[in-house]
């Protein structure tokens, strides 16, 4: 039997959760013994090569591209994990959720005090994914099997979770590993 495969992605996130994943330090060598990375920014594989056991999702969905990627994660992964507060509740990007979309764009590209934008226009290339009306937590878009909160989740939390799931054990994190910050 081949090694289990893991996929990871960062949607509307800051990659901090991925940094925390790397923070497992030398245990990454153990991890590599246990799994192969499939689609992930860690190995820069862009498309799924097949089904994965575990998918780690950082970030919520702020645009259609995020939804598309999250959807393909749900389709390719047995177990889908939201890791980090952005995936779980939208996080910092979701601070725009109480502000109308047009106002956000105007502030970012036209009115903001530090904006330099001689065109005075909001970019609108056909390649730019459409923004969603607000930022959605991952579990409001697809079914999520486990949530690892934190900003970012501690490396130990991620490690414990992965080891448990890869060895088919129930994921039962100790009190100190569930934190929202």
């Amino acid at each position: 039997m081949g090694k289990a495969k893991i996929a990871t992605t960062s949607l509307a996130g800051c990659f901090g959760c991925h940094m925390s994943l790397l923070d497992i330090d030398e245990r990454i060598l153990e991890l590599i013994e246990l799994v192969d990375f499939d689609k992930s920014p860690i190995d820069d594989i862009k498309t799924f090569s097949g089904r994965c056991l575990v998918g780690l999702v950082e970030g919520g969905c702020c645009n259609e591209e995020n939804v598309e990627v999250l959807k393909s994660f749900r389709e390719h992964c047995e177990i889908l994990i939201s890791f980090g507060d952005c995936a779980i509740m939208g996080g910092i990007p979701a601070m725009r959720n109480t502000i109308p979309l047009q106002e956000c764009l105007d502030e970012a590209y036209i009115n903001g005090p530090t904006v330099y934008n001689p065109s005075g226009e909001v970019p609108n290339d056909p390649e730019i994914p459409l923004l969603l009306n607000r930022v959605y937590p991952a579990h409001e878009v697809v079914r999520i099997d486990y949530h690892l909160p934190g900003c970012p989740p501690p490396a130990d939390t991620i490690w414990e979770a992965l080891v448990a799931l890869l060895s088919n054990k129930p994921l039962d994190l100790p009190y100190e590993l569930i934190k929202y910050d």
């Binding site: 779980i88 690892l148 929202y180």
Partner: peptide
């Protein structure tokens, strides 16, 4: 929430 082991709410965020 920590005491109850809540990792994510089951309800949609109202923002």
């Amino acid at each position: 929430a920590y005491r109850f082991g809540i990792a994510a709410p089951r309800y949609p965020y109202l923002f």
